[in-house]
């Protein structure tokens, strides 16, 4: 049996008295590629924040690698939705990737040769080797997104959490990022928050549809994501269904 990476049981989250997630139960096994879809305000980002230990659940049980969220530091790579930072921050692309190693270091340690190599390797995987000395603020939206993926990969994570990595990139870059994830899914467990209801079913193994009370589609190949998307989105959804490439 595959190892369980994430387990949520009757998870509920309230923020400022408003129920954002309620009665959510699901589990993610090692090697899974799970997409979380749903309308804005459906709690997708909140769920990711719970898994990262940034948001405390108000009820239920959450375990990541068999421990409370926030305890599995160093095994999780995180790619935030969009990063608001100073475009003039004096920092190279390599320095940003290097930051992905911080979870593996104790406070007094400085980055060493192995860290540099891991950062360069991560930049190579996302195709940014040529830009590694460029200032981070000089990157385009798609390049920045790939730099943030490189930062997450530099720590050699077993679980990769991505929050709408394709939200601010053009269609071509979107395909590049999905191809990259498709390539990575054989080496790690991936959980992806996205609005691309059409594209995801081509790549992912499972789809979790969140609309406060959740709907879980265990197997998009047997019961296509589109059907679930129609249920959760309050408006017509553009559906492009593809033959699933990874029947479970």
């Amino acid at each position: 049996m595959k190892r369980e990476v994430i387990r949520c049981e009757r998870l509920g989250v309230e923020i400022g008295g408003v129920s954002v997630l309620k009665g959510l139960s699901f589990s993610v096994a090692e090697g899974d590629f799970l997409a979380i879809v749903g309308p804005n305000g459906g709690g997708k980002t909140t769920l990711l924040r719970v898994l990262l230990g940034l948001q405390k659940p108000s009820e239920g049980v959450v375990q990541v690698f068999g421990a409370a969220p926030g305890r599995a530091v160093g095994r999780i790579g995180y790619v935030p939705q969009r990063l608001f930072f100073d475009r003039e921050f004096p920092l190279s692309v390599r320095d940003v990737a290097l930051m992905g190693r911080i979870a593996l270091k104790t406070p007094f340690q400085h980055y060493g040769k192995a860290d540099m190599q891991a950062a360069d390797e991560a930049l190579r995987i996302v195709g940014l080797s040529a830009l590694s000395n460029r200032r981070i603020g000089a990157l385009s939206g798609g390049e920045l997104q790939r730099a943030l993926i490189a930062r997450a990969l530099a720590g050699k994570p077993q679980l990769l959490l991505l929050d709408e990595p394709t939200a601010s990139v053009d269609p071509e870059m979107k395909t590049t990022i999905y191809d990259l994830l498709d390539h990575l899914k054989s080496t790690m467990t991936i959980v992806l928050v996205t609005h691309d209801t059409g594209t995801v079913s081509r790549f992912v193994g499972r789809v979790l549809c969140l609309n406060c009370s959740m709907v879980l589609r265990e197997n998009p190949s047997a019961s296509p994501c589109g059907e679930a998307a129609q249920q959760v989105y309050p408006y017509p959804v553009d559906l492009l269904l593809h033959e699933s490439r990874n029947p479970r």
């Binding site: 990262l52 230990g53 940034l54 926030g70 530091v73 160093g74 999780i76 995180y78 935030p80 930051m99 992905g100 911080i102 979870a103 930062r151 720590g155």
Partner: peptide, 8 residues
């Protein structure tokens, strides 16, 4: 936020 997630 990333620093926090990384255990800093």
């Amino acid at each position: 936020e990333y620093a926090e997630v990384s255990g800093v």
